[in-house]
Every structure is written in C-alpha cells, then in structure tokens.
Simulated assay, not measured.
Amino acid sequence: MVNLEAVSNVVGIIGNFISFGLFLSPLPTFATILRKRDVEQFAADPYLATFLNCALWVFYGLPLVHPNSILVITINGTGLAIEVAYLSIYFAFAPRPRRLRMLGVLAVEVAFLAAVAAGVLLGAHTYEKRSLVVGSICVFFGTLMYASPLTVMRQVITTKSVQYMPFTLSFVSTLNGICWTTYAIMRRDVFIAIPNGMGTLLGLAQLTLYFCYYGGTTPKSGVELPVTSTASDADN
C-alpha cells in the first residue's frame, strides 16, 4: 500500500528545491545593479510583494498557528531572507524618491503583518481558527502573485512577441505550481491548493502563448516578474 504521507513529503521536498530556485532567479538582475551601481528602470515591487507573501506563509507555518509545518518555515523563511537581501541592495543603489517609496510600502506591510499576528493570536483560540484566518489571507495574496503575469501575457498577445516572457521562468513556475498542487491534494490542504492550482493554469497558459507566438525573438532573462512561490509545506 502506498504511503501517501511519505509520497507527499517527497513531493514537498521537491517543491522546496524548485521554490528555492525561483527565489534565486532574480540574481542576474541584482548582479547588474551591483555592477552598474544603479537600479536603472528595475522596480522593487516584485520583491516587496514576495517579501509579504513569504512573511505570511512563515506565520502560517508557526506552531502556534499550524503545527507540524517545519518545511513551511524553512522554505519561506529562506525566501524571506533572500528578499531582504534583494531589497537591501535595491535600497543601497536606488535614488531618494524610490527609497522613500520602498520604505513606505515596507512600513505598510510590516504594520499589516503585525495587525494580522495580533488579531489571530488574540482573537482565534484554536489551531483550526488560526489556520483558517491566516490561510485565507495567504490564499488571497498568493493568488494575486500568481495572477500578476497576466499583464505580461496581455503584452504577448498584443505584440505577438514572447520577448518579455522568458521560457525558462515560465516553465519552472509551472512546475512549481504542479508540484505544490499535487502536494496540496495529497494533504487535503485547500490553502495551498487554490493559489498553486491557479498558478498551474496560468503557467500552462503562458507556455501555450510562448509556443503560439515564438518566432524570431530572443527571450530576455531580466524580466521583472514576481517570484510566485506561494507553495508552503503545510501539514494537516
């Protein structure tokens, strides 16, 4: 008889490796920023969004909210540390207006996280209620992150060019969504299943567009797409 828990753990570990690779995908962008000592036209928005997403999943995985979720904390904690590093580099080389905007957004995000933590820990007195509240918030923001490539997909359809939708990132993001959707089904965790199921569908749509419109253009790896790693190893 197949041990579904063991299989789901293996799938979750694979998902961790894929998610880690996605977290590292913006490295060429920041290597360019460090080399030129200028953020140029790169925006901090994808990294601010991923920072909030990772922080929420880390909170979801805490023993006080959703026990026995160590892999939730490890992968999203790693992602959180990576995003802090990215934002630090961006802040160091960004002009003053962009620095102030970034700090403002960060302040709002931190205040939101503090409010969620206080509300959940003081107002929800069971693991089920805490998981429901935090998980629902994670689903909302995770779905927004997975939906963010829609603007790039629209650009592909309008220009009939995949120049700004790199195949590798789309392919790996799709694998990430498939992996975590499979894990969620095995664990019967709706909070992981919803955003990653949407991510799988959007990833497949991106790949379909790529093969429909590819021809004579060279995909660029420096595209500023959010790292859609909402996958979190939540154990029920």
Rank of each mutant, 00 (worst) to 15 (best):
V190I: 15
P26Q: 10
L52W: 09
L27C: 01
I178C: 14
R187D: 03
G15E: 06
P226N: 15
V58F: 04
I192R: 02
I194S: 08
I75E: 05
Y164E: 11
T126K: 00
A107D: 06
W180M: 14
V223Y: 15
M153A: 07
Y210M: 01
L24D: 06
Y183W: 12
T32Y: 00
A85I: 15
F30C: 10
V120N: 01
F211I: 01
S8P: 00
V116A: 01
M145A: 11
G222H: 15
V152Q: 05
V116F: 00
Y60W: 11
F140C: 05
P28H: 03
Y210S: 03
R188S: 13
V108P: 01
W57Q: 05
M102P: 01
L80D: 02
A31V: 03
L113W: 03
T174V: 13
Y127K: 00
R98P: 07
P63K: 08
R101N: 08
L34C: 04
F20E: 10
A43I: 12
Q206D: 07
L56R: 07
V72Q: 04
C54N: 13
Q41A: 14
I178P: 06
D38A: 09
S25V: 03
N76F: 09
I157Y: 06
L71M: 14
M165N: 00
I33V: 05
P149K: 08
I137T: 07
N16W: 12
T200L: 13
E40P: 09
E5M: 06
S131N: 03
G21Y: 08
A6D: 09
F20G: 14
L52T: 12
L202S: 03
A85T: 14
T168A: 09
R130I: 02
L24H: 05
R154Y: 08
L122Y: 03
V11I: 15
L225N: 14
A231P: 05
N16Y: 10
E83L: 09
V172E: 01
G199V: 05
A31K: 00
V134M: 04
F51P: 00
S69P: 13
Y213A: 06
V84K: 02
L144V: 14
T181E: 07
P63L: 11
H66Q: 13
A43M: 09
I73N: 09
T208D: 12
K129M: 00
C179L: 10
A55E: 01
S232W: 04
A231D: 04
V65L: 10
Y210K: 03
T174K: 06
W57V: 02
V190M: 15
F91D: 05
